[in-house]
Amino acid sequence: MKRECALFDLYRDGELDDAARERFQSHLAGCPDCGSRLRMLDNLVFILKAEKIQPVDLASRIARRAFERAPAWDALIASCFRPKPAVAAAAAGVLLFAFLWLLPGNRTVSAYTEYEKLLNEAESSNLAGRLLVQNDSELLLQLVPLEE
């Protein structure tokens, strides 16, 4: 492929400036690849454009089908879900909070919080605490005297 052939699409799309277009046109005269591609496309597009489309008015039938398939209450539900940012954000917030609160992991977090309090108390009583996992799930706080 010649270097000029790479400009075929830009030429076809009318995106070359005047000078480049003229250069490409001289290239076209001597390049069988680009010349035949251009002719083939011109003729093919002409044929496709000449095709007669005879649309049938389907509007009433389609609307009837749409409402049969999805009755009025469905449209009503759809309307409820139309963008209402404030309501959507509030609902999402409530759902997220409920979800996180119900997560088992969260109870663990709150359990840790309790242990943290105990640890702080232990430290103030000159004791160090260690958290141990027992039976894979139970947490045990072991208190030992702080070393001097």
Binding site: E51, D57, L58, A59, S60, A63
Partner: peptide, 27 residues
């Protein structure tokens, strides 16, 4: 109006764009 349950409104909307959709489908 369509979202409010008006079938005629949807029919009008289809009427406006059905030629374009016919063209795309056909071509």
């Amino acid at each position: 109006r369509t979202l409010g349950g008006d079938e005629g409104a949807f029919a009008e909307l289809v009427r406006r764009y059905q030629s374009a959709v016919w063209g795309t489908v056909h071509r």
